[in-house]
């Protein structure tokens, strides 16, 4: 987890890595969390990716307040996904 000011774009950036038991579960989390986009002109962008069994999220925002709201709501959603996996997982093999 890290926040920094990008000196070239003067945007605030935030990085988050979340480890999952497998790449399958990391991908499920990505596909559950990715569909709802940030507001188009909200001064913030968020990018999700999976590498191995790690879900990585990268934010870029104009203002700290907007960044904080987005990160905090993402963490709420992430913990709901993890809880759902704990109760109703593991994923079936297709």
């Amino acid at each position: 987890m890290a926040t920094e000011r990008n000196l070239e774009t003067s945007k605030l950036e935030f990085f988050l890595d979340v480890p999952f038991p497998s790449s399958h579960e990391a991908t499920i989390a990505l596909r559950s969390l990715d569909p709802d986009k940030e507001p188009r002109r909200g001064g913030i962008s968020k990018h999700l990716s999976v590498s191995g069994s790690t879900l990585s999220v990268r934010w870029s925002a104009d203002e700290a307040r907007i960044l904080r709201v987005s990160v905090s709501s993402f963490l709420d959603h992430l913990s709901l996904v993890v809880e759902t996996m704990e109760v109703f997982g593991p994923p079936v093999d297709l």
Partner: peptide, 14 residues
């Protein structure tokens, strides 16, 4: 909130 759980179980259950 509700969509996220629906998406997650749909994937877990295939």
């Amino acid at each position: 909130t509700v969509a996220i759980v629906a998406r997650t179980v749909a994937q877990l259950w295939g």
